[in-house]
Computed example of a mutant assay.
Amino acid sequence: MKEGKKVSSFILYSEVRGVARVTLNHPQKRNVLGEDLLRLFLKKLKEIKKNKAIHVLVLAGEGKCFCAGADLSAMQALSEASLEENKKDAFLLAQVLYELCYFPKPVLALVHGFAFGGALGLLSCCDMVIAHPKTEFGFSEVRWGLAPAVISPYVISAIGERQARRYFLTAERFSAETAKDLGLVNLVTEKIEALSDDYIKMFLENSPAAMAVTKKIISSVVTKEINQTLIKKTVNLNAKMRTSPDGRAGLKAFSQKTKTYLVLKS
């Protein structure tokens, strides 16, 4: 299914025979998760959730990649703002992740190019992820003096504590096959659209009510419940790291295209 109707400059949206498709549409900035995009995405998720005619949600990215993660340029500007302003900004991503994680309909993500940082939070909240074999993945936050705080509950649920320790702390990039081994990706293929159609058909053959209940069951047996207390804690950590000396140095290094925050710390 291809995307159609344009909703805004940051989101493409279409509905075809019970399938909704949301495409992150800011290719000039590699579909970064900026405030405007996140607000529109959150609004659209809430609308689709209430739409009884929609039974499946497909998530994709426009242009050369799925999503480069957080908008670090905007984050740099906010790093000089108050802690409360940074909490407010971080909470927007937290809301999107929570809404996506507990979405009552099947969510299928199609990934190509690369997916970094916050983008992996999105993928961890989806029910299935299909990736192109040349896709690159990575958690780059610590390289820029930040921490993957807001996405951590979802990512650790997907890949486990042991692997999170490695990939969160090294900031190394990894392949689609490695992402599959970790549990971030379900299937790897060059024909992501064709394969997605097969799974969409499977979802559409199932009872929407039964799938919604099944998703609730899965969530209910997760050992670490993602509740408002946990969300508040991760948002606070995110905001503190943004406004810390390392965070400010890292975001400045990113804007100046230097290799790491250490260049500006030394």
Rank of each mutant, 00 (worst) to 15 (best):
K2D: 13
G4D: 10
F10K: 12
S14T: 11
E15D: 07
V19I: 15
R21D: 09
P27A: 12
Q28D: 14
G34M: 00
E35V: 03
K44M: 15
I48F: 05
K49Y: 08
K50N: 08
N51D: 13
I54K: 10
L59Q: 02
G61F: 03
E62H: 00
G63S: 01
C65G: 05
C67W: 02
G69P: 04
D71G: 03
L72M: 12
A74R: 03
A74V: 00
A81L: 13
A81N: 15
S82Y: 05
L83M: 06
E85H: 08
A90D: 15
L92D: 00
A94F: 10
Q95K: 11
V96K: 12
F114Q: 05
L122N: 00
D127A: 01
M128F: 12
H132F: 10
H132C: 09
K134G: 14
V142D: 08
L146M: 13
A147D: 07
A149T: 12
S152I: 04
Y154Q: 01
V155H: 01
I159H: 12
R162N: 07
R165F: 04
R166W: 02
L169P: 10
L169A: 14
A171R: 09
R173T: 13
E177M: 11
E177L: 11
D181Y: 06
L182R: 03
G183W: 00
T189E: 01
E190V: 06
I192V: 14
E193Y: 13
D197F: 00
D197R: 02
I200Y: 03
N206T: 11
S207I: 10
S207R: 07
P208N: 09
A209P: 04
M211S: 13
A212T: 08
K215C: 01
K215E: 03
K216E: 08
E225L: 04
N227K: 02
Q228R: 15
T229Q: 14
T229C: 11
L230E: 02
K233I: 03
L237H: 13
G250H: 14
L251Q: 02
T258C: 09
T260F: 06
